[in-house]
Computed example of a mutant assay.
Amino acid sequence: MPSFPVPAPDPAARATALDRLDGLVKPVGSLGRLEELAAWLSAAHGVVPPRPLDDVRVVVFAGDHGVSAQSAYPREITAAMVRVFLAGRSGVTVLAAQVGAKVRVADLAVDWDGFQVPDEVTAHKIRRGSGAIDVEDALAPGEAQAAFEAGRAIAAEEAGAHVLIPGDMGIGNTTVCAAVVAASLGLPSAEVVGTGTGVSGEALERKTAVVAAAVRRASGRVADPFERLTALGSACLAATAGFLVEAAMRRIPVVLDGIFSATAAVVAEEIAPGARQWWLAGHRSTEPAQAFAMKALGLTPILDLGLRLGEGSGAVQAIPTLRAARAIIADMGLLADLT
């Protein structure tokens, strides 16, 4: 497997930030998580105070999944939602506008049927849809690597951002994520499967059975992360992993969203050890697999709002908190200056 060298955040900037935070006009540690985030941003930017977070960009990785039959919504919703993103009327585009973030859609594997979309949306397309992972591989040989490189290219295109957020759109993606998390961390399928778009009862039992069948089918092939993505993942999941790795290599802070980006992060950290130092968890998803992924990565979500929309919508909500963290270290006075 190729090597992806990841630089470490600046330890000297972090130490300087911690010293300054302890000297602000407040009891030591009294601003809690905000202080931790301020030090993290300082280390990521290599300067105290960290730079303003003015240029925040969301990239929504879109693709269809062969297990979409387990969802409460039909496969065609993926393509329809891409058009909603482009029209600026989706959840994440509306929420991103509130914090001044830009939203881009990247079609990696949407199974379009007669719709026309701008060329820039499909510039990195790998295929149409993916295999039903309980009975076949998600991707053809070589496609996981190609999608990973596409994600790296997308991150390179967004290299001017102060913060990047990976979003997702694809009916059936929580099923895929549950399978990849179970295979990556050696967990029972029943512990990682969640309600996704809102399934329950017999539908949830079927979803769990699909994940269990997929993991069994791929057993013996999941040690290699690219082989795992081929068997159980998707083009958009592999691209998100590449996006996360490239962002870390370029020293760009990333705020992860829900289960989809958390799953990609588990694989990305395996491919490029140390990349997780450049990521924050924006919010706590209602999907159980995300909790396992966050624990494996050593990340603690900033917010817990009960969100399960995806798209990058939860991570966008964490941006005001990050800006508040920067403000305290940039603008608060020092105890030493009191007269």
Rank of each mutant, 00 (worst) to 15 (best):
S3V: 15
A13K: 04
R14W: 09
R14Q: 13
A15T: 13
A17Q: 09
L21N: 05
G23T: 12
L24M: 08
V25W: 11
K26I: 05
L34S: 07
A38G: 06
A38E: 02
A38M: 07
S42F: 10
A43R: 10
A44S: 13
D54W: 11
D55K: 14
V56G: 05
R57V: 08
F61E: 02
V67M: 13
V67H: 03
A69K: 14
Q70P: 00
P74L: 11
P74H: 09
R75G: 07
E76K: 13
A79C: 06
M81F: 10
R83Q: 15
L86K: 02
A87K: 10
G88S: 10
R89H: 14
G91D: 02
V92K: 01
L95A: 12
G100I: 11
V110H: 04
V110L: 07
F115L: 15
E120A: 13
I126Y: 10
G129T: 10
G131W: 08
A132V: 14
V135S: 09
D137S: 12
A140E: 15
G142Y: 12
A146V: 06
F148W: 05
E149N: 12
A150L: 02
I154M: 08
I154H: 04
A159H: 10
H162R: 14
P166H: 01
P166T: 00
G167K: 03
D168H: 04
G172F: 04
N173P: 03
T175L: 04
C177I: 00
A182W: 03
L185S: 06
L187T: 06
E191T: 05
G196R: 04
G201K: 12
A203D: 10
E205K: 06
R206F: 07
A212Q: 10
R216Y: 08
R217Q: 09
R217A: 12
S219T: 12
S219Q: 15
G220Y: 03
D224F: 09
P225I: 09
P225F: 05
F226V: 09
F226P: 01
E227H: 13
R228W: 06
A231C: 14
G233D: 03
A238P: 01
T240Y: 02
A248E: 00
M249S: 09
R250Y: 08
R251A: 08
P253F: 00
V255Y: 04
G258H: 01
I259A: 08
F260P: 05
A262G: 11
T263H: 01
T263P: 02
A264E: 00
V266G: 03
V266L: 10
I271F: 04
G274E: 08
R276W: 06
A281R: 00
H283E: 05
P288D: 09
P288L: 08
A289C: 07
Q290D: 11
M294I: 01
A296K: 13
L297R: 10
L297N: 10
T300C: 06
T300V: 09
P301A: 05
I302M: 07
D304V: 00
R308E: 11
L309D: 04
G310M: 01
E311F: 03
E311V: 03
A315M: 02
I319H: 01
I319R: 01
P320G: 11
I328H: 14
I329N: 03
I329Q: 02
D331C: 13
M332P: 15
M332H: 09
M332N: 12
